[in-house]
């Protein structure tokens, strides 16, 4: 059984984001990078399936980006992926989801992956497109926003998370692609021996130019902070004073405190 998990490296979301010199994405200097949170669940689920199936399964992790993404790749290898593909692209951030999905599709086509895992979206761009678009390009069955996953006899039983806490249960025949939602499982910590052993696992490097044939379908024309709508009061300062101020406002504006 051939498994693929696609991951993205994103900045720590607690960072302060500043527009880059072209003003169309963030300035990458001084950012700390980590694996997209949604993708951690995807990797964990793929590794669990890899363990369930045993040695007849092979799990490949794929990431597109500059050399820094190797750290996220190595984390996936340490978590239990067997091999990796690094599609080297110093300008991955300027590609739109259509191009990213097409690059992966160009790689995956004809490789016979039975099951592909992705996160439901990235934390930085948040388009929620790459997984579904990839499935569509490959002609795979696809379910999004998984909070439950089981596999047996060529069939995936997936629980999709719907609004209001309801879940939709679906069955997919392989080949299939699933996009993973937060809370799907409990992503493991990579163990130190596995981090070291992952060094010996293969990382195939492919230049993005070898796979990219598509032009972007969208253009980002600006990246900026949200306009402050104003209206709300911002209180800052000493805790003791803040409490007095807030209680004053609550007494004034709500019926809750008198």
């Amino acid at each position: 059984m051939k498994l693929l998990v696609c991951i993205k490296q994103v900045p720590d979301m607690e960072s302060r984001f500043r527009p880059n010199s072209q003003g169309i994405w963030f300035d990458e200097n001084d950012l700390a990078w980590r694996m997209n949170e949604y993708d951690e669940y995807a990797v964990e689920q793929a590794v669990q399936l890899r363990e369930q199936v045993g040695d007849s399964a092979e799990l490949t992790v794929l990431s597109i980006g500059p050399d820094r993404v190797v750290e996220a790749i190595k984390k996936s290898l340490a978590m239990g992926c067997d091999r990796a593909v690094h599609i080297r692209d110093d300008h991955a951030a300027t590609k739109d989801p259509w191009q990213i999905a097409s690059i992966i599709a160009a790689y995956a086509k004809g490789q016979g992956f039975d099951l592909i895992f992705t996160g439901m979206q990235s934390q930085d761009r948040g388009s929620a497109q790459v997984g579904v678009t990839l499935a569509e390009e490959l002609g795979y069955a696809c379910a999004t926003t998984l909070v439950g996953f089981a596999y047996g006899d060529g069939t995936v039983t997936a629980k999709r998370e719907l609004e209001g806490g309801i879940k939709g249960v679906v069955k997919l025949a392989t080949p299939a692609l699933v996009t993973c939602q937060l809370g799907l499982n409990v992503p493991r910590y990579p163990t130190l021996p596995n981090i070291m052993k992952a060094k010996k696992k293969e990382i195939e490097v492919i230049a993005v130019a070898d796979l990219l044939t598509e032009q972007p379908l969208t253009a980002t024309t600006s990246f900026h902070p949200p306009a402050r709508k104003g209206g709300g009061v911002v209180l800052e300062g000493d805790v003791g004073v803040l409490v007095e101020q807030l209680v004053g406002i609550l007494k004034d504006k709500t019926a809750v405190l008198r």
Binding site: E71, Y189, P190, I195
Partner: peptide, 14 residues
């Protein structure tokens, strides 16, 4: 190295 960073990261997160 990447391995050292990953170990640092694992220690930090844990």
């Amino acid at each position: 190295t990447e391995e050292q960073k990953l170990i640092q990261d694992t220690a930090r997160v844990f």
